[in-house]
């Protein structure tokens, strides 16, 4: 067999072999530790060397490749079972900043200069060292930063605001096709969807993406971008109606002379106000 044919066959075989091996080795993404990088490099180089027939003995090549694939898998399994093995393979996370103070000994351990530390902090949007409460270098070499509590973005919890839980939206129409499974997940059906689309005045075939949020509100994006879709304002309207009812009841209470009736109106106005308070996080966002 001529040499070029051998190279062609080997290359094709190694291409698929490498594909399968990498799949077997798992889903580790590029943020792998340094040793994983070495493993992948060795596999890549071995694959190339076998392909271009530098390693003439196929068996030797495959044995080496097998060892470099099997050992990492075995070690990964051991690491799951034992913390000691895990630390041995992956190393430990190293704390760079603690209680707002830079740990110089640890910096030397990971061979970071102050300049590099600042660069990493900046890349995490901490431009001011004074804002950093805690920073740690993960085993993958990434630096993660915890800002001081007063510098962290405010959450509704910080503001003492009550917010409604908002579950993820379900996509019910894609490319004009109605998807039945997400609809069923929400406890809705096609009739409901057709009804909603009719209210918006669009046909299902004209919808590129249709999503239903946690409160059952439909958002539709159309193929025809010149057509304006009325966005649902039902919640805002509902809240405004409640507000109007409260005002009405108050004015009734003022107008009547009958004390008992006055009290009844005032009591009910208070009740509606509590309802408004309760529904506010759900209706207004």
């Amino acid at each position: 067999m001529s040499e070029w044919l051998i190279v062609l066959l080997k290359s094709t075989a190694m291409f698929f072999l490498a594909l399968i091996l990498i799949r077997i080795m798992g889903k580790r993404q590029p943020d792998m530790g340094p040793f994983n990088f070495v493993t992948y490099s060795v596999i890549a180089v071995l694959t190339v060397l076998i392909s271009v027939n530098v390693i003439r003995n196929l068996v030797f090549g495959l044995i080496t490749l097998g060892v470099w694939v099997a050992l990492p898998i075995a070690l990964d399994f051991l690491a799951v079972k034992s913390k000691w093995v895990h630390d041995l393979i992956n190393g430990k996370a190293i704390i760079l900043v603690k209680d707002g103070k830079v740990m110089e000994e640890n910096l030397i351990q990971v061979r970071y200069t102050g300049e590099e530390l600042l660069r990493e902090l900046r890349s995490r949007n901490a431009f001011n060292l004074a804002d950093v409460e805690f920073a740690v270098m993960e085993t993958t070499g990434d630096v993660n930063v915890l800002l001081k509590s007063e510098k962290q973005p405010a959450t509704p919890y910080d503001l003492g605001k009550q917010v409604a839980p908002r579950p993820e939206s379900q996509t019910v129409i894609l490319d004009g096709n109605v998807l039945d499974e997400p609809l069923a997940n929400l406890g809705l059906n096609r009739e409901w969807l057709n009804d909603q689309l009719e209210r918006l005045g669009v046909s299902p075939a004209n919808v590129f993406i249709g999503q239903v949020d946690g409160t059952g509100e439909l958002y539709a994006d159309l193929f025809d971008d010149s057509q304006q879709v009325p966005q649902p304002k039902v919640k805002e309207l509902l809240y405004a109606n409640l507000e109007k009812a409260v005002a009405d009841l108050m004015s009734f209470a003022l107008e009547t002379n009958d004390l008992q009736v006055k009290e009844m109106y005032a009591k009910n106005a208070g009740k509606l106000k509590r309802v408004m308070e309760k529904l506010k996080p759900y209706l207004l966002r």
Partner: peptide
């Protein structure tokens, strides 16, 4: 009837 998490449904 159509709110998804039981919590908001109960509030309504």
């Amino acid at each position: 009837a159509q709110s998804q998490p039981a919590e908001s449904s109960a509030a309504f």
